[in-house]
Each structure stands twice: as C-alpha cells, then as structure tokens.
Design a protein around this nucleic acid. Structure first.
Lengths: 173, 173
DNA sequence: AAAAAAGTGTCAAAAAATTGGACAATTTTC
DNA sequence: GAAAATTGTCCAATTTTTTGACACTTTTTT
C-alpha cells in the first residue's frame, strides 16, 4: 500500500496552507492545498487522497466550528474511507468531542506541533488502511455480545441472529 | 433490557458526588457514588453498572487528567462493555481527544448542564446495549472493504480472508 | 497497439457450516 | 421445591463456502 501518500489540507488562510505544506511536504508523497472547502468533494473524486486536514471555520466572523462539522459530515457521506483530522485555532472541548463522535480521526489545535500533526495524519492513514479479516471481526463481535449477555448463549444467539447451536460451536474454537 | 439502570459516579469531591446524585437520581434506577476510584473495579464485580461517570483528577494538585485516563483504561480492560463518560473541571482539548480515542463514550466539563449530562449517560447506555446482528456487521464490513479496494473484488476477498467467489455471491445480495 | 497480467462472471462437485428438532441433564428463577 | 430456562449433544436436511476451471473483459506494461 501507499507509503503515506496524499494529504489534502483545507483552510481559508493562505498562510496556514503554506505553513502546512512546508511541514508536511517532506513526509508525504503529495500535499494538496485547498483554500475553499467547496472544492473538497470534486477533488476527492479526481485524486486519490489518503487523509484530510480540515479547518473548522470558514464563514468569516464565525468560530463555532459548525462549518467544519458540516463539511466533515459531507466528506464522510461521500467518501467514508478517507480519514479526516480536524484542526482549529479555538480550543473548544465541546467542538472536539462533537467532531470525534462524528468520526473524525483526530482533533488538533493551532498553532500545531509539527511532530504531532505529522504523526496524527500518519496514524489516521494507518488506521484507515487496516482491514480486519471477516473471521476476526466475527470472533470479536461474538465475544463482545456473549460477554454482554453474561454468557447466556441462548440470548446472545438471538441478538446475533444465528442459531444457538451455531453460536455454541463457534465459541468452542 | 434495563430502562436506564445503574449509574456509577466517581469523584473525590463529596459535593460533586452529592450534586450528581441529586441530578441523576430521578432519571436512573440507581446511582452509586464512589469517592475513590480504587473501589471502581470491586464495585463493578459486585453490582451491575450500566454506565460510569468518571472524574479525571484524583491526585491532589494534579490536573493533567492522567489519573482518569489510567482508570479508564483499567475499566475497559476488565469491563469492556460498561460505557464511561469522562468529566473534568479543566477544559482541556487534548485530554478530551485522548479520552475519546481511548474509548470513552463522552467527555463533559464541569460545571455540567443537567440535561446534557443526563442525555449523555442515556445515550451511552443505549449505544452500549445496541447489538448489531452478525449478518449486518458482515454486510457493512464487506461494503467498506470493497469500497476501499475501489471495487476490486479479488483484492477485497484476500483482505477479508474469504474466497473471491464467496465475496462475489455475498455482494450480489 | 500488441502482449501480458489481472480481474470478472459463472458453473459444477466436494467439503464444511448452519439449521431446526429433539432430549436428558443442569441451572436459574420465582 | 416446582416451573421455566438453558445447556450440551446428536442427527438429518439444507445452505453456504470452497476449489478448480474456463471464456471473456479490463488494465497494465512494454
């Protein structure tokens, strides 16, 4: 797989864009910068992007981050497998929490720490590329559900939508 | 299933404990308060707890939240299915991000908003009780992986650990 | 653009897994 | 302690998965 391929940076401040490009350039094959979030989707449709660094505020005078969340949602809907790292100048716990719960890979504050920003993006890419084999996923999920049912196999099998006997034999292994 | 059963509140400040109890009492069957996190595990082993509200700082003079994260990790290791809502007086984005990435259900700041706290806990419980049928999980996962492989069924089947023909037929449905 | 490589759609037969019914032996619940 | 629920197993009937094969299409390489 791509060795930390292409990053897309989205921020309406050109200075930030430049700074980000300089910081990231040496660590990623390609750094695309966008000054307007409106171009995100069309760009994603053309280029293969491995991670997005997305600013939270684009509407002048607004710093609620609502903007960024909207774009995050949009990206996820159309390109669910591209990880998004959120970034903002306004350290806002509630915003960070909302962003992460909406599925952002990470949340970074400006001014950023170079090391952290890079590793955040790399981690996001690593995580997004990891594929769990179907069997493993099944095993994990079964384990969780059986635990949640306090070992009651009968109820667990109902919740899982498989027969009790099948669950029984799956567990034996 | 239990209709918003038992909440465990952990905080070393008795005033907080009292306030939390008063706030939560009317909305949950049972509210257990612990002034020391050391009692968390033993209590979990005895009582059935549906969600934990966990303060982040217990070591006097420390407000890094490191404490709380440690306990969070501990809880997850021994009781992976009990959702934990983190709470702290020090609005710290980095701490919130770390907590959520470690698997906390939510992150709330003091002083809390009653409505929000209650709904956060209820949501956490709802989410923790939701069980995805095995078939659905499989379908979702397959969808994701095939997408990630840009529709290349052969590669997707390899990553998933099943035969190409099987994946093919699974997709047709 | 031709050749080579990779991937698709499909089939059939063999192997493996899932299901539903059944039943004695626990275990849990009231 | 009786009743209800769950477990551990077995079996036969199905269903699913696998494996191997083959013609055809798409993509990649040269």
């Amino acid at each position: 797989m791509a060795q930390y391929g292409t990053i897309m940076v989205v921020d309406d401040n050109p200075a930030i864009l430049t700074a980000a490009k300089i910081t990231l350039q040496p660590h990623f094959e390609n750094v695309i910068t966008l000054s307007s979030p409106k171009d995100i989707i069309s760009t994603l449709n053309q280029e293969e992007v491995n991670a997005i660094l997305l600013d939270m505020n684009f509407t002048a005078g607004m710093n609620s981050g609502h903007d960024g969340l909207q774009w995050l949602e949009n990206i996820h809907k159309l390109h669910p497998d591209v990880p998004v790292v959120l970034i903002t100048a306004y350290a806002d716990v509630k915003l960070a929490v909302t962003g992460l719960k909406m599925g952002a890979a990470d949340f970074v504050t400006k001014p950023w720490n170079n090391e952290e920003l890079i590793s955040s993006l790399k981690h996001a890419i690593d995580a997004s590329e990891t594929v769990v084999p179907l069997g493993d996923l099944e095993t994990q999920h079964i384990q969780r559900v059986v635990d949640k049912c306090h070992g009651n196999i009968t109820r667990a099998s109902e919740l899982l939508g498989i027969s009790r006997q099948t669950l029984y034999s799956k567990i034996k292994k």
